[in-house]
């Protein structure tokens, strides 16, 4: 029934298996696991897309490899752990997934994380914005990759 890629479905399951307090702890772990930017993006924010809907500036970049796998890169400051946590969920849940799988993720999947109670619904909207921007970039990359040279 679920249309979530397996890794994202696992994360949603982890979050829903625990109470609101532990969900915050999980979110903190996701924020800590967000990998640093590779050299080609570090210090090159102009090549990334800003997500102004997040409460703190967040930048993201999307790549689609030759095999059709989606790769995600995020940059958010350590003093914004909630935003980093949202990025961490998307990174761990979607990195490596296929184009179609990423595009099939429901826009409101984040409601299933049960974070509304733990971080307030207002703060969650950044997550929806990140996903929307990721999908738009995936569509663009995918179109570029399939257009004849």
């Amino acid at each position: 029934m679920s249309t979530l890629p397996a890794s994202l479905a696992d994360i949603v399951e982890d979050f829903t298996a625990v109470g609101p307090k532990d969900r915050l702890q999980l979110l903190l772990e996701m924020s800590q696991q967000l990998p640093p930017l590779p050299d080609r993006y570090a210090g090159h924010r102009e090549s990334m897309e800003q997500v102004p809907e997040c409460q703190t500036p967040l930048f993201l970049a999307v790549e689609v490899d030759d095999g059709g796998g989606v790769h995600l890169f995020f940059d958010a400051p350590p003093e914004a752990p909630t935003t980093r946590g949202f990025a961490g969920i998307l990174r761990e849940g979607l990195d490596g997934a296929g184009v179609e799988d990423v595009l099939a993720v429901p826009e409101d999947f984040y409601l299933g994380l049960g974070l509304g109670e733990a971080v307030s619904p207002l703060r969650l909207r950044g997550m929806a914005a990140m996903l929307a921007r990721i999908k738009r970039q995936v569509r663009e990359r995918d179109r570029q990759a399939s257009s004849p040279r």
Partner: peptide, 9 residues
Amino acid sequence: DEDVLLYDT
């Protein structure tokens, strides 16, 4: 804080 997780870091 504004960021609900900042205290926890």
